[in-house]
C-alpha cells in the first residue's frame, strides 16, 4: 500500500510573530527520496516538523493518507511516520541496543515491555544499519558517523512507512555523508518513503528523486526532479545569491557551487 503526506498551503510563524513558512504546498510518498533544500532560515526544518505533526500549522492542512494529521493519535501517527532530529544529547548513557529498542515505543503496550518479535526487529535494524557489532557499546562513546547510524536504526525500529530526517549528515565528513545517503537510497528501494532536509545540494542532487526548494522569503520556489529544480537562475533566486550549476564528474547530473569572489 502506498502512503503519502500532502501539505496544503502551509504557513507557520514563531510565537514572536516572525513568519518562517508561507503558503507551501507539497507532497511526499513511499518509495521515493524527497530532499528539502534552501538557504539558512528558509523554514526547511519547520516544514519537516509540520509534515510529521510535531508542529501545527498556523494555516493550511497536513493530510496523512488523505486524512487530516490531527485525526491520528500520537502513537498511530508514529507507527506510520518517524522523525529523526538533527542532533540528540542523551540525558544518560544507554547501550546501542537500548537506544534502538526505544524506537519500538509506538508499538508497545502501556507497560512498554518488549516481546520476542520486538527484539528481533531491533536486531534486524542493527543489521540493516551495520551497527550490530556496536550493540553493547555505550551510545555516548560512539563517533559521529556511528551515532547517526544508530539513531537511524532506532527510527527504523519504529517500522514507519515514511521517514523524515532533519540534516542527518551535517556533522559527517564527505565519505560518511555519501555512505549515509546511499543507506537512505537502499531503504527507499525497500519501499520506505524518505524525506531529508539537507544543506548539501550536491548530495540532494545525487541521491534524491524529488527536490523541494524553499526560498529566502519562506515560500516554495520550485519542486520536481533534481535537473528540473537545480538551475542557476532558480537557485540564485531562492538563495538570493548567485550560484553556478555544472555537471557531476561521474553522472553528468547537476552539480552546484558558488562563484569565485561573487559575480
Amino acid at each position: 500500500m502506498m502512503h503519502r503526506i500532502d501539505a496544503e498551503a502551509l504557513a507557520y510563524s514563531y510565537t514572536s510573530g516572525q513568519r518562517v513558512l508561507d503558503d507551501v504546498s507539497t507532497h511526499v510518498a513511499t518509495g521515493e527520496v524527497t530532499g528539502i533544500i534552501g538557504p539558512n532560515g528558509a523554514g526547511k526544518s519547520t516544514l519537516l516538523q509540520l509534515l510529521c505533526g510535531l508542529l501545527s500549522p498556523e494555516s493550511g492542512n497536513v493530510l496523512l493518507n488523505k486524512s487530516p494529521l490531527e485525526q491520528y493519535t500520537d502513537r498511530e501517527r508514529a507507527r506510520l511516520v518517524a522523525y529523526m532530529p538533527q542532533s540528540v544529547s542523551p540525558a544518560f548513557s544507554l547501550t546501542v541496543r537500548e537506544v534502538v529498542a526505544l524506537g519500538r515505543f509506538p508499538h508497545l503496550g502501556p507497560f512498554g515491555s518488549l516481546g520476542t518479535p520486538d527484539h528481533e526487529i531491533v536486531q534486524d535494524c542493527l543489521g540493516q544499519t551495520e551497527t550490530s557489532h556496536l550493540a553493547t557499546r555505550d551510545f555516548l562513546s560512539l563517533s559521529g558517523g556511528e551515532r547517526q547510524r544508530v539513531l537511524l536504526a532506532s527510527v527504523l525500529a519504529q517500522e514507519p512507512q515514511l521517514l523524515l530526517l532533519d540534516e542527518p549528515t551535517s556533522s559527517l565528513d564527505l565519505p560518511h555523508e555519501a555512505a549515509f545517503f546511499r543507506q537512505l537510497r537502499t531503504l527507499s528501494g525497500r519501499g520506505l518513503g524518505i524525506v531529508v532536509v539537507t544543506h548539501d545540494i550536491n548530495m540532494a542532487a545525487q541521491f534524491c528523486d524529488r527536490l523541494v526548494l524553499l526560498g529566502k522569503d519562506h515560500r516554495l520556489v520550485n519542486q520536481g526532479g533534481p535537473s528540473e529544480v537545480l538551475q542557476a537562475d532558480i537557485l540564485t533566486d531562492a538563495y538570493g545569491s548567485p550560484l553556478l550549476v555544472g555537471e557531476h564528474p561521474q553522472t553528468g547530473g547537476p552539480f552546484v557551487t558558488a562563484p569565485v569572489g561573487g559575480i
Partner: peptide, 23 residues
C-alpha cells in the same frame, strides 16, 4: 509508574520523544 516507558523516551530529548508518539 504507568509513564515509565515515556520517561525512557525523554532520554533523547523532547523532539525525538514527540516523533515516537509521546504526547
Amino acid at each position: 509508574l504507568l509513564q515509565a516507558a515515556r520517561y525512557d523516551q525523554f532520554a533523547f530529548g523532547t523532539t525525538l520523544a514527540a516523533g515516537r508518539g509521546v504526547n
